[in-house]
Write a protein that binds this DNA or RNA. Structure first.
Lengths: 198, 198
DNA sequence: TAAATTAGCGCACACTTGTAAGCTGAAAAG
DNA sequence: CTTTTCAGCTTACAAGTGTGCGCTAATTTA
């Protein structure tokens, strides 16, 4: 089946092209189908052999991006299992990702509040995954009731994303500082969740 | 000076037009100069008599939107002065704003992670204002050291914005629920900040 | 009153865009 | 070998874009 193989390769080329066109001043919605095709080295109309339209492509990218990020965070949790502070290791990992794959992170960030309902839902789903995994982790490592663990996880994930968004276009000097602030703030949440009454 | 007056009116018409074109599926960057002109009832080229380009217009809108939101939150704090729970009143006010002026809030949200550095900075500035005002409030109403108050305020504002973003396209039934979750999470932060050691 | 300013308009231009229609050549199926 | 399938191409078109240029008519200034 050499034919299918070739097709997958072109499909990958299209996705790569789209990713590489993303930057701090280009979002998916400002990139045209023709640009992607040009970058991928195919005719504009050939695009349709692989995706229904740009939204279709975008959804695929969001899914892929979210998956990559979550896989990384799972690895981080493994690192923690073999000793180390949960919060610190997680944040370090996260920030590493943000800078190593800033286009992916930007994609998620932008589409989270973007103009396409489908995109927003896709990103929202990704974030829910994060929250679910973190909730699970908290439950297993503390004695908090499920509901409280979930509240804590949600607050943490939102704060982390928010800070990641801010950090992404900052010089490394200030990144570090921001990370440290974030870590303290996450501890606020952890402490508060643990000693919350009523 | 009837001439200047007329001009200001047209300028206002342009800004209104732009605002009214915003929606959950139209962002500033997807709105064309010609569309704005059409909606405002002027010729496309007349637009230039008032703004350098769409970015210029956008910046003005961001400034105006941020100002409106901050003024509202100041009012909320006055309401609190005459009795009432700080967090609850603030969040209720905020959520009211989000739904009454959803286009303004969406504008801020989107441009926060948008493609224009100038926009991002403008929104960032607005958020810093929020944080500064809240920090000040916390300092005056608790015995926390400045730095800790600032950390708390920052975490709170980010969490509130993040939740507002999520709430904006949710049915009222779930809005309420989300607000209640948010309030608990803010208490986590308040408690954590108060009892943070080291 | 005469001159200067200017908000708004119409026209025009050069582009870019998404995508429909139909062809080609090679791979896969029979 | 013959037929079918189909990824990718070329061509074409209608629609929309930002903006330069120069005019007009009314207001403001002198």
């Amino acid at each position: 089946m050499n034919r299918k193989e070739q097709k997958l390769q072109t499909r990958a080329a299209i996705m790569d092209a789209a990713f590489s066109l993303l930057s701090d001043e280009r979002s998916l919605s400002s990139i045209s189908l023709r640009e992607v095709a040009r970058e991928a080295g195919i005719a504009p109309t050939s695009f349709y052999r692989h995706f229904k339209d740009m939204d279709d492509l975008g959804l695929t990218l969001v899914d892929e991006g979210g998956l990559a990020l979550r896989q990384l965070m799972r690895q981080a949790r493994l690192r923690i299992a073999s000793g180390g502070d949960v919060i610190k290791v997680s944040i370090d990992t996260f920030m590493e990702f943000v800078f190593a794959n800033s286009n992916v992170f930007r994609l998620l960030l932008r589409e989270r509040s973007g103009t396409s309902t489908a995109f927003r839902e896709a990103v929202s789903r990704e974030i829910q995954h994060f929250i679910a995994e973190l909730t699970d982790y908290i439950c297993r490592h503390t004695k908090l009731p499920l509901e409280r663990a979930n509240l804590q996880a949600e607050a943490m994930v939102k704060l982390v994303f928010s800070t990641g968004a801010e950090a992404i276009d900052l010089p490394p000097a200030q990144q570090k500082q921001l990370s440290e602030r974030l870590i303290k703030q996450l501890r606020f949440i952890a402490i508060g969740a643990a000693s919350f009454k009523k």
